[in-house]
């Protein structure tokens, strides 16, 4: 259900290029932090770590309906 790390929407959401609607408070707080981290250092290493952190978070909370909605919102039809 969750696309692999090569899906371009991971980077787009962390770089603030897309702004999907997010429902789950945990996703909002984590994403807010990851975007700040990216703004402070947009190296390939930072992006890779941010994607891993967000992906791990979503995977751990996959049974939460709001998180399922967040995933759909980030990836649209590809999720």
């Amino acid at each position: 259900m969750i696309p692999g790390p090569s899906n371009p929407n991971w980077e787009k959401v962390i770089a603030g290029e897309i702004k999907p609607n997010i429902e789950f408070l945990g996703t909002k707080i984590l994403l807010g932090r990851l975007i700040l981290q990216y703004q402070g250092n947009s190296s390939a290493g930072t992006i890779r770590n941010c994607i891993i952190e967000l992906k791990n978070f979503l995977e751990k909370n996959l049974n939460v309906p709001k998180v399922q909605a967040d995933i759909k919102s980030i990836f649209g039809g590809t999720a």
Binding site: I22, L25, T27, K28, I29, L31, G32, R33, I35
Partner: peptide
């Protein structure tokens, strides 16, 4: 602060 829609 607006943390992706969460007002902190």
């Amino acid at each position: 602060a607006d943390m992706y829609g969460a007002m902190i």
